[in-house]
Design a protein around this nucleic acid. Structure first.
Lengths: 191, 191
DNA sequence: TATAAAAACTAACACTTGTTAGTCTACTCA
DNA sequence: TGAGTAGACTAACAAGTGTTAGTTTTTATA
């Protein structure tokens, strides 16, 4: 675990600003001010604004794709796999809250790596759907439209970055458990 | 029902562009090109770029606030009220898909009306929470953290604009019913 | 068909954008 | 101590931004 470089600091600061106003609305001068330096000095550490976005988004997207692959190939039943997917999102979002905002809101501003990103996302969603379909086949999961199930779960999980910062009292485990309860078992007390 | 003015067309076109790239990344020249005119000509119809955003966001935000008030004051039980809230989102999002993107992603770029928007949103969420709390009191709803329930439902409902355009085959009623099934009753077959 | 209003145009503005070039300073280590 | 390097600076660029002023064209109506 080597120490954080100046470049890392810039990327972290950029992610925070991108979360607040979006990639397009953040200028290199905004970023420089937040770093306590002049805009030109940023270029001693990074090649372009675009490179910052690429680093933020691609690294997290790859983390998700690898994570769901491990879960899918494990020996658990489908409902447990879904709970593990929930825990994966909670964990990554807890560690990289600001970066998740860019992943969700600014992916379309990727220039060179847009295709790569979309491939990772399609891959992720395809694996997610496979887990759901296997759960339906094994009668663990209600035979509802699997895309609606995935959409519901992913909408919630992709919005976690908005919500986690406001709920510091809740630790990651509690949150993942509560979400599993609501997302998997529903909220209706009388079944 | 008077016919659509040129201003309405501009706002509708802007909403479509804002959905694709976000408010900040869309230039007046982009908008003009999409309208088949020059940027300066837009100003025969609108006062500023900011005005366009304001019109898009505030009108929809008010529609939501009024809608949930009617639902809250109705004589239904809490679970039915929640299903009606789901139907409200499906209806507004079906009719104003592109505008919903701005409401979700670009509200922070409101300049003069940011406070008004935030007041509407806080009001909406407060009413939502009241419905959930009354449902817990009447034992219709599981005593899970009410904010987690709202967060889960709102995340899904606020993301509908991303999803509805891809699912043209599903009509609004079917979609609302499916969502109620998943969001309210859960996906676990064996309870 | 003449007239007024609506809506387009060209040209330009002042400012902001990402980025480059070249320079100065402070620390590291031989 | 002296050389090299990491990292800051100032100044400037070319392109792009929202917007205005003034003019011409199109459309509708009397």
């Amino acid at each position: 675990m080597k120490t954080e470089t100046r470049k890392d600091e810039i990327i972290k600061t950029a992610a925070k600003l991108f979360k607040e106003k979006g990639y397009s609305a953040v200028t290199m001068r905004d970023l420089a001010t937040a770093m306590g330096m002049k805009a030109a000095s940023l270029y001693n550490h990074i090649n372009s604004k675009q490179e910052i976005l690429k680093i933020i988004i691609i690294s997290i997207a790859e983390e998700f794709t690898k994570g769901i692959e491990v879960i899918y190939n494990s020996n658990n039943n489908s409902l447990d796999k879904l709970s593990q997917v929930i825990a994966l999102h909670v964990k990554i979002t807890t560690n990289s809250t600001n970066e998740m905002a860019s992943l969700n809101n600014d992916w379309m501003h990727l220039e060179g790596q847009l295709d790569h990103y979309l491939a990772l996302r399609n891959n992720y969603e395809a694996t997610f759907i496979k887990i759901i379909n296997e759960g339906i086949s094994s009668s663990e999961i209600k035979p509802v439209n699997p895309e609606i199930i995935m959409f519901t779960m992913l909408s919630t999980l992709r919005s976690l970055f908005l919500w986690i910062p406001k709920k510091e009292e809740l630790n990651a485990n509690d949150l993942a458990n509560n979400l599993s309860e609501v997302l998997v078992k529903g909220i209706n007390k009388k079944l």
